[in-house]
Structure formats: structure tokens, C-alpha cells
């Protein structure tokens, strides 16, 4: 028992805490009947993942995760939950057979993943965490310049496309939209 306690380190405890936060949040997303609760559980998961990034020494990626995912994507998701009908309860859950098959398939996949992860020998090198921001910036403007520009164009196109999609629907169905607003009130 004493041996076990002496093996526990602060960093180990922090890792297990972050892993537990991540997985419990994910379970909340999967199992909560209320879509809004799912959204907030997704926020907990994303914070846990950002913590794992920081724990891995990826300071820049962790900060981007916090800013873009939680500040951007999650807020948009929650907005779209609030803008559509059936706020909250996801009444139409899947049938028991669908869920049973899904549970079986997912458990089989989990078994395979855990088996291969624990059986494989990973050739790792002991690394010391150094700040990554400068190296990432350097890489983005040198070897990853073309993918960086490409993904900027992809992001611009998809944002313009999303705006066009949402706007045209609003113009064509202004009467219908009025109906749904009245129904919400």
C-alpha cells in the first residue's frame, strides 16, 4: 500500500483528473437526453482535451483549442440548439435495438483499440517540453506554407457558403420563419 502511494505523483494525478474530466464529459454528451446538457458536457470535454494538450507541452494548440472550440464552435452549436424547435428534450431517441447494436459495435471497437494500443511497442524518445509557438509559426511559413494557405481558402469558402445557405433560406421562407418564431413565443 505504501509502495502504491509513493508511486503517485502530482503529474500522474493531474493526468488522471484530466482524463476523467474528458471521458465523463464525453459520456454526458452521449447519454444525456437534454441537448443543452449535451452541449455543456461537450464544453467540459473540450476543456479536458485542452488540459491534456497543455499537459503534453502543446501550449499553442491548447490555447487555440480553448479559443476556437469553446469560444467559437461550441457557442455556434448552442445557438443552433436554441434556434431550432424542441429546445432541450431529444424526445426521439433511438430504439433499443439500435442502441444495443451500437453498444456491441462500439465495445468491439474499443476492445480492438485497447488491445492494439497496449500490445504494440511504441518507439518513443524521452523529450523535454519546450515552447512550441515559435516553432509552429516557423513551420507554418516554411514547410507547411501551401497547406496553410489551402486551409485558409477552405475556411473562407465554407464560411461564405454557410452564410449563403442560411441567408437564402431565411429570405425564401420568411413567412414560415415568422411562424416558427410565433410558435416559439
Amino acid at each position: 500500500m505504501m509502495d502504491l502511494i509513493s508511486q503517485i505523483t502530482v503529474s500522474g494525478l493531474m493526468f488522471w483528473f484530466l482524463a476523467a474530466v474528458t471521458i465523463v464529459g464525453g459520456l454526458g454528451v452521449a447519454l444525456s437526453q437534454n441537448i443543452l446538457y449535451s452541449g455543456f458536457c461537450l464544453m467540459i470535454t473540450l476543456i479536458g482535451v485542452a488540459g491534456l494538450y497543455l499537459f503534453l507541452g502543446a501550449d499553442f494548440v491548447g490555447a487555440v483549442q480553448l479559443i476556437v472550440y469553446i469560444g467559437g464552435i461550441l457557442v455556434v452549436i448552442l445557438f443552433s440548439v436554441l434556434l431550432t424547435k424542441r429546445i432541450g428534450v431529444d424526445k426521439t431517441t433511438s430504439s433499443w435495438m439500435n442502441r444495443g447494436v451500437s453498444v456491441l459495435g462500439c465495445l468491439a471497437l474499443l476492445g480492438m483499440l485497447l488491445f492494439s494500443v497496449t500490445k504494440a511497442t511504441w518507439r518513443v524518445t524521452e523529450t523535454v517540453s519546450t515552447p512550441t509557438t515559435a516553432r509552429i509559426g516557423d513551420g507554418l511559413l516554411r514547410e507547411y506554407l501551401f497547406p496553410f494557405e489551402l486551409i485558409s481558402v477552405v475556411l473562407l469558402m465554407s464560411l461564405v457558403g454557410a452564410m449563403v445557405l442560411a441567408r437564402r433560406a431565411a429570405k425564401d421562407n420568411s413567412g414560415q420563419q415568422q411562424d416558427s418564431i410565433e410558435r416559439l413565443q
Binding site: 471521458i23 464525453g26 452521449a30 491534456l52 431517441t93 433511438s94 451500437s102 474499443l110
Partner: peptide, 21 residues
């Protein structure tokens, strides 16, 4: 940890019927 997260995500995609979920 990432295997668990992947499986949970797959279960969510497979069983939810709400598009946002």
C-alpha cells in the same frame, strides 16, 4: 484516453437522431 473518446463519439453519432447532437 483517445480510444475511449473515439468510441463515445461513435456511439453518439450512431444513436442520436437530433442533427446537432
Amino acid at each position: 484516453v483517445s480510444s475511449f473518446l473515439f468510441v463515445i463519439g461513435m456511439y453518439t453519432v450512431a444513436t442520436r437522431r437530433h442533427a446537432v447532437a
